Simulated scan of single mutants.
Amino acid sequence: MKSLEYLSLWSNNLSGPIPRELGNLKNLTRLDLSYNQLTGPVPVSFGNLRNLQILNLDANKLSGSIPKEFAYLDNLVSLSMSYNHFSGHLPERLCQGGKLEIFTVNSNKLTGPIPRSLSKCSSFKRVRFNNNNFTGNLSEAFGIHPELRFIDLSDNDFHGELSSNWGKCENLIDLRVARNNISGSIPPEIGNLNLSNKFGQNIPKDIGRITQLNVLDLSYNLLVGDIPPQLANLKVLVNLNLSHNGLSGCIPKELETSTGLHDVVSSYNELEGPIPNNKAFINASLEGNKGLCGNVAGLHPCEMSSSVVKRHSMAKGRKLILITVLPVMGALVLLCVFIGVLFMCNKRRRVRDVERRDGDGWLSISMLDGKALYRDILNATEEFDAKFCIG
């Protein structure tokens, strides 16, 4: 059937090897053999299918290496080989035609680094490398993919740090690199995140700028500090997983406005305080924290929470100090004023009593700041005689 263009045999009970004669159908543009019981290697004759645009071999029992002859398939738009037993390295020069948009090889036994032709494939839109044994430095393995929307690199042996190049993939909404050996900090430019690794430091506040984020999985890392309230800016966020980290403080009250949030996992951190009044937290996984409270199953009501009681006691203690100290200080001020008034009144009374007339009609001073009597002064100076004048 040399004129055949479309052959779809998916989801049957076909078994045995793939006939190499299928490589003679040079006008095929689509071949779908997925979800069968096919075994053995992929025929190298598939390299003759130069017009092939879609090849789907998912969910079989195929084994061996992926033929290097696939590099001749310049018109491939979609190549799917997931859930098989393929092993060895990916062939070089895949995507050399620059048309490959969908490439899925997840759940095989593939090894080695990502070929350069794939790491630079600018036509990628959806890619799955997860559940293999791929290696390499992730900061160098991929470049900038302007059309890429989804890529899953989870469950491999990648190392290094995440490159900020991922943030330059303007259409990327889902990046998954869970369970690798990636370390370092999270670049704030990155979009949709599933990053279970060994990341340290804080959750970057710039994540709140990625408004199309709908899945954020940062579980099983070494993240510390507070949960940034900027997460509330992610209006389309549906799934949030922050479990198994060292996050502390309160869950931001701002998340009450995240009406689209559906699934929340914040277990095994050091979070405390009340949970946000959001329906997503009613069935959320929150166990393993030290002081969360709220009216949901598994948590103490907030008025019974030890952390809240402690804070309330501290506030009550400060209030008691203010109540005690302020009146005492006020009383001391009033007492000082009262003593000052008494002193002034006493001084004025003494001045009024200074002058008085004696029996001889002379003006006498009984006491003036401890000095001698005025009469004694008069007598001593012979009534202020000039010979006693000293200046």
Rank of each mutant, 00 (worst) to 15 (best):
K2P: 13
S3Y: 07
S3K: 10
L7P: 00
W10A: 07
N13S: 14
P17T: 01
L25H: 05
L28R: 11
L31P: 02
D32M: 10
L33Q: 10
Q37T: 05
Q37H: 14
V42A: 07
S45L: 05
L49S: 11
L49Y: 09
I54V: 15
I54H: 12
L73C: 06
D74M: 10
S78T: 09
L79I: 03
S82N: 11
N84Q: 05
Q96G: 09
K99G: 03
E101R: 03
E101T: 05
I102M: 00
T104L: 09
T104E: 12
S107H: 10
S119E: 13
F129M: 06
N130C: 14
N131H: 13
G136E: 15
S139W: 01
E140N: 08
R149M: 07
F150I: 00
I151M: 12
I151D: 05
D152N: 14
L153A: 14
R179M: 04
G184Q: 02
S185N: 10
I190A: 11
S196R: 15
F199A: 05
G200H: 12
G200E: 09
Q201Y: 08
K205D: 14
D206N: 02
L216P: 02
L218F: 09
N221L: 03
A232D: 11
K235P: 01
N245S: 05
N245P: 02
G249Y: 01
G249N: 01
C250V: 09
T257W: 02
S258F: 00
H262S: 04
V265C: 01
Y268T: 08
N269Y: 02
N269E: 02
E270A: 07
E272C: 06
G288I: 05
G291T: 13
G294F: 02
N295I: 00
A297E: 10
V308W: 06
S313C: 06
A315H: 05
K319P: 00
L322N: 11
L322A: 15
C336A: 15
F338T: 06
I339W: 14
G340Y: 12
L342Y: 09
E355F: 11
G361Q: 06
G361W: 03
L363W: 06
D369Q: 12
A372P: 08
L373H: 12
A380R: 06
T381H: 12
E383V: 04
F384L: 09
A386W: 01
A386C: 03
K387Q: 11
F388I: 03
I390E: 10
